[in-house]
Amino acid sequence: MDLKINGANHQVDVPDDMPLLWVIRDVLGMTGTKFGCGIAQCGACTVHVDGIAIRSCQLPVGTVGGRAITTIEGIGDTSAGAKIQKAWIELEVIQCGYCQPGQIMSAAALLAANPQPDDDAIDAAMAGNLCRCGTYVRIREGIKHAARA
């Protein structure tokens, strides 16, 4: 099967029902996307499929088809993604960092769809991403900071 990830084509020989997360991590060795719960509760595995933030741990790879997959390794090439990553660095949002690829992917999708998100929009877009270090205060500030950039 052919996958288009971060603009590059990848051929993989995997079962259709294998979640995209494990194809990305274990088969292709792109480990920026994280395993956090396996049941779409934590958001650590968030990637974009045609720009939409999706939990890759619950997405069978066979359903992706030719749609464009973007991971944390490629999000910096998008305008919204670059702004979010810059804001994350400038405001020092990150602590352990394990959930942050997922946080950044959700925030970048939000910013691309809604360039000036208010608190309610941030809550709605980010409530699916858990952070055990508790960086939520700065995630909220970071999104607003990126929106101003």
Binding site: I89, E92, I94, G97
Partner: peptide
Amino acid sequence: DTPDKAAGKT
């Protein structure tokens, strides 16, 4: 440690 973590490289 932040730049690598923000880029998913850590």
